[in-house]
Design a protein around this nucleic acid. Sequence first.
DNA 1: AATGAATGAGAATTCATTCAT
DNA 2: GATGAATGAATTCTCATTCAT
Lengths: 234, 234, 234, 234
Amino acid sequence: MSDMTPTSGADVKSHVTDGALIQRRRGQIVAAAVELFSRQGYNDTTIIDIARKADVSSGLIYQYFSDKEDILLLSLLDVLDSYKREIPLAIEGLNDPLARFLAALEAYCRVVDQRREATLLAYRSTKSLPGDRRQLIKAHELATNQLIAACLQDCIDQGLCRPVKVELVTYQLVTFAHSWALKYWRLNELCNLDEYVAEGVDFYTHALLTPKGWRRYRKLRPLPAGQAEPNSLP
Amino acid sequence: MSDMTPTSGADVKSHVTDGALIQRRRGQIVAAAVELFSRQGYNDTTIIDIARKADVSSGLIYQYFSDKEDILLLSLLDVLDSYKREIPLAIEGLNDPLARFLAALEAYCRVVDQRREATLLAYRSTKSLPGDRRQLIKAHELATNQLIAACLQDCIDQGLCRPVKVELVTYQLVTFAHSWALKYWRLNELCNLDEYVAEGVDFYTHALLTPKGWRRYRKLRPLPAGQAEPNSLP
Amino acid sequence: MSDMTPTSGADVKSHVTDGALIQRRRGQIVAAAVELFSRQGYNDTTIIDIARKADVSSGLIYQYFSDKEDILLLSLLDVLDSYKREIPLAIEGLNDPLARFLAALEAYCRVVDQRREATLLAYRSTKSLPGDRRQLIKAHELATNQLIAACLQDCIDQGLCRPVKVELVTYQLVTFAHSWALKYWRLNELCNLDEYVAEGVDFYTHALLTPKGWRRYRKLRPLPAGQAEPNSLP
Amino acid sequence: MSDMTPTSGADVKSHVTDGALIQRRRGQIVAAAVELFSRQGYNDTTIIDIARKADVSSGLIYQYFSDKEDILLLSLLDVLDSYKREIPLAIEGLNDPLARFLAALEAYCRVVDQRREATLLAYRSTKSLPGDRRQLIKAHELATNQLIAACLQDCIDQGLCRPVKVELVTYQLVTFAHSWALKYWRLNELCNLDEYVAEGVDFYTHALLTPKGWRRYRKLRPLPAGQAEPNSLP
DNA sequence: AATGAATGAGAATTCATTCAT
DNA sequence: GATGAATGAATTCTCATTCAT
């Protein structure tokens, strides 16, 4: 599991009072659960499976989670948190809005690749949560999207990208990244991750960049010597 | 349920011999199952739920399906088949490759919209099938994608679209359509279906069209009088 | 199935009135049932199995039997009847009581061998019948035993056998014959049917014959020339 | 249930790890199962019946047995083990081969009498087990037979019994004992257990003893004063 | 805090039996 | 008389959850 607490915002009850212990135990259990849920699905994973993999007793789990659904909630949040954590890391230190935008896109693709099965889990199992828990998940998703949307908005504000509906386009970018996990069974036959990212960059630059944006882009990623612009601007 | 047989390629056993009756009963049961699976998920739907909704006895279901998994398989195929059926309908009679391409995209978005919950079902529940059944689902998905890919290829062949990796871009289009279902909870707050489709058209034309493609596009969809090109070409 | 009506004494209701048809249909169905019950057991044989093997519909069976138990009853009676039919055939024409006794023993062993699986069926499944049906089975068994007991009694009356408790010894003989079926899995590794019968004859003659009985026995089955009495009399 | 572990040789899985507890619970459950299976038959006894009689929950049973068949297996082994346990007890301390032989026969009859219903169970339900489990049952039966066969062989070796095919005759003795259970419904009308045993001894002595054997027999069981030899030697 | 044995409600599946055609 | 589709009660087995130790 990730090293950050996955409980952000979730109101999950524990019978145990020692905060550090709660952190450690929940981490242990969620790590086991994410792996098993991802591999076998939520319903086909038993509490005993999780307990065995986490190397604790089944009874212990109920001291840190009120029910199985709670484990799922924290498992999903753990996945979403890993997205939310990686993107800022990828863009920190970069000042150019276009560079930040592209870095965010690439970072998202890479974190999805690292947690491919877990990404599928989020798509498959969110509906197993009751409505209010689902809201929490959605809020996390929107927060992550916002990280990307902000980059795009900056590009537009600086005239590097066409004025598009930012959130809609953000969803396209997010979906592009998620698709690497969702359709991995086929995409992996067509290209590797680097090629997939490159294809995405090619696609979104054409879809979004203004002439000014293109000039900036060329500075960021000069063409190799002797190679002509592959997709000539109109 | 749809009016076409959903059994295409699936080897689902029945104890009943009368072919027409099998069609009718399976249709009845799959229709109930798709609705319940979509709403409550595969695992939280019981055979008795399905029987009650289909207005048959629980035992009857086992005369037409060998187990619950079989119902899921035919349910998923029913959804995928509805995609595969609508797209050809939308493009038949159109000759221009670009018109066909755009019509296919729009049709896909509309059929996803009509079967929004069922589309989610496919994402959530395919993994509940055993490997060989899953292959069948994947084959159907690829066949549907091929319908769109062919349109795109034609556009490229005629110099209307940039030469891109056809199957990868097809996946983007497919994912764009699916996202309307996957992220409906948020997208529906941002726009309606028509706007979503328009946004997609705007996006993909910018990403793909050549100058020649743009001229063709203007013939297909002239700007309203007095309105300037919204996103001026670079 | 055997050619004699198996309904002797059983009050099995039929919805059909034509007597000859009842005979034929019941024969057809019981023949199928005996084979299936013998091979798979009563509980693991379904009405549909029987219908399929008898080449009729499952509904038809209920026109000739009131329930599954009824089929079992007639199946068991069919087996017991075949015993009761073969023994008289084997001893008719024989006048000597000892010859009749030995012929009855041998005949019983042979009919058990011919219907080995069906004999097991009787041991396994009689308890599946309700008490009153079971009485009927027992009456048939006693009647068959009586055929043998009468032979033994004659031998005793004529001083060929020791005066023993006739019915108890009869049970020994019956059990000896049945054992060929019950323990076939092992006995068949030790000897063939002829040897088994010979062993039985050897055993029972030693256990039962008087000196007068032995002299009679020697007339019936003279020793091969040059062979001494294998088990010399005391 | 018997006080010895019935698991001899059977590879029955348990989810519980505490060995002593497994012994206790399995004993509890098998005791209930043997009684119910004997009375109602294997198929007509439900897991819930067994649970209720054993005074545990139905779920508990599945912590100690992997399925219903496993309960049957251990139930049958429990019965066979009680045979295998009683015979050695009956002959230990006896040195004379003939005395041992007769004691074994009598002991077998008595243990069958004590577990009459359970003996029937073995005949009725062994076929409900899959082939490999059945082999285990057969091996146990053969091992028990061997205990008797050894006594008989000793008698033959010392010239007390005629040289007969030991295993075949052993099966006769075994069948004689089993018949007390199999045909109890009738035998019990003819005699009590002591008389049945006496009848068996009378029968087998006449069938097997040599003159030397008879002299030994008279020493073991002198005739009551003033009573003539009932079945005078020829 | 931790364990794991025990519980029992719940779900899929089977199959004897009925009955409209 | 014959058919076979339809029924639904009954059964096995699973697993989240509890609680005594």
